[in-house]
């Protein structure tokens, strides 16, 4: 049986891993290569890197980070942040990424998803969905936010659920659903958002934003029907280890890749 994946997320700014709260106030959390190797040894099933620097200098630093990580860490890597063209995607894949995640560029040019999927396969193209609850909306709905690299970004004028379904039709092979309301709060994933996305799409769904405990991860998988759970601060600051999270999930009957037996 396919296991549920646990994915540490490393936000990279100017070559360092940082972590903020609700996409702001970023603090230094370590060296990306060291952290990647540490997470690999701890049993991470995959790693996600987001380049949250917007400058072109930052782009080259990011390529270098991806190369160095991919040369030393032999688990799947997803890289996102600032990728705008098929050529950008190709550079990241050549540097050692297995998948690329796109958000703003896909909103502005949805055909980029189709082009990327055609050239590299659906399994390579991940939709990074930054979703924010619309205040006071009844029933609840979420809007897509773009340019969220460092700060809250802006509304894309799209409904998050409709956009995710469209992106999957265009060829996105996976959706990372990041709740901007929950990000960095450690108060739990947005389970309503995950459930709504599970209803609307059939591609693998990665829960992101709000992880504070292994119980939250279980809820995302059980109630949100997520295929994978992504977390940053609880792992970076050793609030919980990946091993603890896996042990807990296994005890609740979730299929996971155990640490010791490979």
């Amino acid at each position: 049986m396919l296991t549920k994946r646990i994915i540490p997320c490393l936000d990279v700014k100017a070559g360092r891993v940082v972590k903020g709260v609700r996409f702001r106030d970023h603090r230094d959390a370590g060296d990306p290569v060291e952290m990647a190797a540490w997470y690999d040894a701890e049993g991470a099933d995959e790693l996600v890197f987001y380049d949250i620097t917007a400058s072109s200098d930052g782009r080259d630093i990011m390529l270098d980070v991806v190369e160095r990580v991919a040369d030393q860490v032999f688990i799947p890597l997803t890289v996102g942040g600032g990728l705008r063209t098929v050529a950008d995607m190709h550079r990241m894949l050549k540097a050692g990424a297995d998948k690329v995640s796109i958000n703003t560029a896909a909103v502005e040019n949805p055909d980029l998803i189709r082009q990327g999927a055609e050239q590299f396969g659906n399994q390579c193209i991940v939709l990074g969905l930054d979703a924010m609850r619309v205040a006071g909306a009844e029933p609840v709905r979420w809007e897509v936010r773009v340019r969220t690299g460092d700060g809250g970004g802006q509304s894309a004028g799209l409904d998050a659920i409709e956009w995710a379904a469209r992106a999957a039709e265009l060829g996105a092979g996976e959706i990372v659903a990041n709740s901007m309301d929950a990000d960095g709060t450690r108060e739990g994933y947005d389970l309503e958002l995950l459930s709504a996305l599970s209803e609307a799409t059939t591609v693998p769904l990665v829960a992101s934003g709000g992880a504070g405990s292994p119980e939250h991860m279980y809820d995302a998988i059980d109630r949100g029907r997520a295929d994978a759970v992504l977390a940053a601060s609880i792992f970076h600051y050793r609030v919980h280890s990946i091993g603890e999270a896996k042990e807990y999930l296994a005890s609740r009957g979730v299929p996971i890749r155990p640490l010791s037996a490979g």
């Binding site: 994946r5 099933d45 295929d227």
Partner: peptide, 24 residues
């Protein structure tokens, strides 16, 4: 069931080829 089959899955081994030695 999602296609492609993407992620970590179990391999039940049979036989004793040296390249697969020591893999539980």
């Amino acid at each position: 069931r999602k296609i492609p089959h993407m992620g970590w899955n179990r391999v039940e081994l049979c036989g004793s080829h040296p390249v697969l030695a020591g893999i539980p």
